[in-house]
Design a protein around this nucleic acid. Structure first.
Lengths: 167, 167
DNA sequence: TGATGTATATGCTCCAAGCATATATTTTTT
DNA sequence: AAAAAATATATGCTTGGAGCATATACATCA
């Protein structure tokens, strides 16, 4: 029973953090829903294909195509043909898209940092260590890794535990 | 920069946990989206009004009314008139709704427990302690508390940090 | 070369979500 | 006490994102 309570607390915290994250990110995105994640994913993996994006976002194929259509119409992303596979599309951010991506990531960062501010430096280190251990236990496939990291600021994530687990 | 990395890890973990939670919960609900949370909230607060439910789910008013319509049509919930305020609706689960609610909560519990299984007992205690501290720092209003706890198993949550923070 | 599999695109339909508005009840103001 | 404002719910209307089915192009394998 004591364990159930811990699970409640951890689950509630995860929901609350995820709510904040998504709210902050979506506020800087052109539309609600998966657009913010799509932008940061393309930003991190220039040349990403629609199919990989689809799997990272857990969306249907047509839904992903339409989402990309809208990002392109908004001037945030562009389609190129992939050099290695002529069926595939290589997605890239436009300069405006890069700006939006940065705005999303820094909004996310700010919200997260303020939520974590109640912890002391030692507590934060300890919490992060345990979080990394949990994260390593969760990663399964590479697609799943993209999904988990869909709102991460990769430039700040040297030595990422998700990458470490995949390798 | 090291701090940014910790925030990445914690944010990614929160997203991953929230994904799992919502997936497990929605799998037992009659429809995707906020239905699972609505069922567990009504289960925990019998007599809940549509307006309070609306705020907990962060939905529009008409959206909430329609959601309740569907739950009623599915035989999971029922509308009664609130004894103290004759404008308001008092929502309650039917026996079938109670069954569904239990299924949602135990699916959520199972998924969460397996994700936490990589931690030792001491690590889990430590992680839970820090999570509770973070959670207390996040709670603002009573509506927000309902939102945070929207998928909690209240029967297992004696001494809830959210309640403690509100009081 | 032919057959199967994979990546993308698009017409179609559906349905959840929001807006505007209407009604009933409660609370506040005059 | 009557009038005005606020609150709770309900519903017609529209929109737009999401999935299904299908079509096309390219790739891979037999």
């Amino acid at each position: 029973m004591a364990d159930s309570k811990i699970e409640n607390v951890i689950g509630a915290l995860a929901l609350a953090f995820a709510d904040t994250l998504q709210r902050d990110a979506q506020a800087k995105a052109p539309e609600p829903g998966p657009a913010a994640s799509a932008i940061t994913l393309i930003g991190h993996v220039p040349g990403l294909s629609i199919e990989r994006l689809r799997r990272a976002l857990s969306l249907s194929h047509s839904g992903t195509v339409r989402l990309v259509d809208r990002l392109v119409a908004d001037g945030l992303a562009a389609r190129f043909s992939a050099p290695d596979d002529h069926r595939a599309v290589a997605l890239r951010l436009t300069p405006l898209g890069e700006t939006t991506c940065s705005a999303i990531l820094s909004a996310r960062q700010t919200g997260l940092a303020s939520a974590l501010a109640v912890l002391s430096s030692e507590e934060l280190q300890e919490f992060g260590k345990l979080a990394a251990k949990l994260l390593r236990g969760l990663v399964s496939t590479e697609d799943h890794a993209y999904r988990i990291c869909r709102l991460c600021n990769y430039s700040a994530c040297l030595d990422c535990p998700v990458e470490a687990e995949l390798a």
